[in-house]
Computed example of a mutant assay.
Amino acid sequence: MGSRMSWEDLWPVLLNGTLETLYMVGFAALFTVLIGLPLGVLLFVSRRDGLLPLPKINAVLGAVINVGRSLPFIVLLIAMIPFTRLLVGTTLGSTAAIVPVTIGAFPFFARLTENALDEVDYGRIEAILSMGGNLWQVIAKALLPEALPSLLAAITLTVVMLIGFSSMAGVIGGGGLGDLAIRYGYQRFNNEIMFGTVAILVLLVQGVQMAGDRLVRSLAHRR
């Protein structure tokens, strides 16, 4: 690939990179929510004054999540190479990149989930408990439904972060727009590729943020 490309050559390359990024972000977002949501709920209910006081477990879990949030993602990418190879058999490509991207994101989402549950009116929780409800009923009928707008806002913020993470995964050959920008835009000085990837990433972030904000507002108005 030369330093310049025609539009006929440019669009298929950018389209492929965009699809790989969407694939990475989509699955990483799914796994991030599946891991981070229950961890966030556990953080909330296991507090010393929580619904299921487990202060030691809460302290350990909180420390692990704080460590995960504090690690620079580029360091995590490199540190996760052996685990990624063990899990998926390779460290290259979009599928391999899902592993470190998810691990980098779920501690962040778990903490956002805990903060979202903090906003739930405790009167609703007490009402369910006074009627003989158990912990799972409180979670299913009060905590998660009442916190849904905040949780959707947290998911939106997390997906935006995942888009950035997926781009950084290009440093280790993770595929997608980040890999495209590094291999062709930066290393081969191809300005068309560089500008194209940046423009698409900006559009993706804006699209996700606008859609998420609209959904959150819609739920808030219904409530």
Rank of each mutant, 00 (worst) to 15 (best):
P149K: 11
F165M: 07
L157W: 08
D121K: 05
L152A: 10
L135P: 04
A147E: 00
S166M: 03
A105R: 03
G170C: 09
R124A: 14
L129K: 15
R124G: 12
I155H: 00
A142E: 02
N190F: 00
L143H: 09
G173C: 03
Y122E: 13
F189N: 05
T156S: 03
L162K: 03
G174K: 00
L112D: 02
L180E: 00
G174E: 08
G123R: 15
F108L: 07
S167H: 00
V159Y: 04
E119H: 15
Q187V: 09
G185F: 01
A142Y: 07
A169E: 08
D179L: 04
I155C: 00
I193A: 07
E192I: 10
L152K: 11
M194H: 08
L152V: 15
E114I: 14
G170E: 06
D179V: 09
A110P: 09
R188T: 07
G170P: 06
A127H: 09
G133Q: 12
E126G: 13
S150Y: 04
S167F: 05
E192W: 06
G176R: 04
S167P: 03
A116W: 13
D118T: 15
F106V: 05
R183I: 08
L112I: 04
R111H: 09
F189K: 11
L117P: 02
L151V: 12
A142L: 10
G176L: 00
L117S: 11
A127P: 04
A110D: 04
L143R: 05
A105N: 00
V120C: 05
S150G: 06
A110K: 12
F106P: 03
L162P: 03
D118W: 14
V159H: 01
R111M: 08
T113W: 08
D118S: 12
D121I: 13
L112R: 02
F195W: 14
S166G: 05
A147F: 02
L129Y: 10
G175K: 00
K141M: 14
L151Y: 12
E192G: 04
D118Q: 15
A127I: 12
V171C: 05
L112E: 02
L135Q: 11
E119C: 15
F195P: 02
G178E: 00
P149Q: 09
I128Y: 07
T158V: 11
P145K: 10
M168A: 06
M161Y: 05
G178Y: 01
E119R: 15
L157D: 05
I172Y: 02
W136R: 15
W136K: 15
T156N: 02
V138W: 01
A116D: 03
T158Q: 07
S130M: 13
L148S: 07
V171E: 08
W136P: 06
S167C: 03
P149S: 12
L144I: 13
E146A: 13
A153K: 15
L135T: 07
M131H: 14
I139F: 08
L135V: 07
P149D: 06
A140L: 14
D179W: 05
P107G: 06
P145G: 11
L151K: 05
M194E: 00
L143A: 10
S167R: 06
M194V: 07
L157Q: 09
